[in-house]
Design a protein around this nucleic acid. Structure first.
Lengths: 183, 183
DNA sequence: GAACGATACGGAGACAGTCTCCGTTTAGCA
DNA sequence: TGCTAAACGGAGACTGTCTCCGTATCGTTC
């Protein structure tokens, strides 16, 4: 790739990250192009649509997911605490910007989604947490990681849509955790 | 209201119901106006925005909610069955059209929402179901009806976004139910 | 049943966002 | 230094939202 192309690509991603965080996932792409100092054509050549742009942004986010998972798994404690800790982390990770939880959660079950590979990192991480709990026979085994992510994603979506804070979300996560923990 | 105004109002509501069901909540309002045989101005005079139109549509839906609640409460059986029956009913009721679950669920927690009064019918119904379960000491009492509706609404939102069918939704609802039933 | 004001109609058009097309510019190689 | 493939950028086509205001209609009053 030509040096100028690479430079523009980076600038678009950086700007998009900021604008999405400021205005949510619906922000105008033309505005992102303008703020990045490029023409609309340049933005659309690099990223044919909104999702392709999001996918690029998520690249570095994937690393944060990995790190957060490690941290959670390192945390010693009873199964319920581990699960709740992971849920809190999960909600935080997918609440990148307004609309993020819905976007990511719906991508989990959609084989066609352009951001699917990135989201699979999430289910992979959930899988590791659940594997640990299964070894301890602490969790019911008829619900897989994707479903758990969808459940917790549902809570995050609701929180995102309704501007619920962490205190309001906590009891919802507890209900999900307790529902899972019986086996 | 003048007779012609009333006639147009009804036609717009009927058409909107059809179009929303066909195309989801994002359908073009100008198209609804056109299919209803009125000008855009007429539509916007009757309904200043999308939500006002939805609110009018929900009027008759409220009656269905009431009826469904009666039917569920009449159903004898163990608490878990009652709860799951209500959850299934609830998901069905709010999955009116694409985008419905997210719309309705986010309205539950938003005092400013223009469709809030309609949605309160839902929490009222949930309250009745939970009251019955509380009498039987079957349910934890630190989660109120609104939170339960948000949880189940979260599941419905995920199902709506990801085109999950009833079989895929069932285990998610079971997790929520089991989480609630311990107390 | 004619006249008249209040009410309602409807569609042109302003505005905003998405995305494409294509003439112009530039990087980077020989 | 010249050449060409690659990249740029912005005008504009298209779609959807919503407003404005000239025109039409209702229904009341005499």
């Amino acid at each position: 790739m030509r040096a100028d192309a690479l430079r523009n690509r980076e600038r678009i991603i950086d700007t998009a990250r900021t604008v999405f965080r400021e205005q949510g996932y619906d922000a105008s792409l033309d505005e992102i192009a303008k703020r990045a100092g490029v023409g609309a054509g340049t933005l659309y050549r690099h990223f044919p649509n909104r999702d392709a742009l999001l996918d690029a942004i998520l690249q570095n986010w994937v690393e944060r997911v990995e790190a957060a998972t490690e941290k959670t798994l390192a945390h010693e404690g009873p199964p319920r605490e581990l699960l709740l800790e992971w849920f809190r982390t999960y909600v935080e990770l997918i609440s990148l910007h307004k609309g993020g939880p819905a976007k990511i959660t719906s991508a989990l079950g959609d084989p066609e989604s352009p951001i699917r590979t990135k989201c699979q990192v999430l289910t992979g991480a959930a899988e590791r947490v659940m594997e640990r709990l299964r070894e301890e026979h602490a969790i019911r085994d008829d619900v897989d990681a994707v479903r758990v992510c969808q459940l917790v994603g549902g809570v995050a979506t609701v929180a995102d849509n309704g501007d619920l804070d962490a205190d309001a979300v906590a009891p919802l996560l507890e209900v999900v955790a307790d529902g899972l923990l019986r086996a």
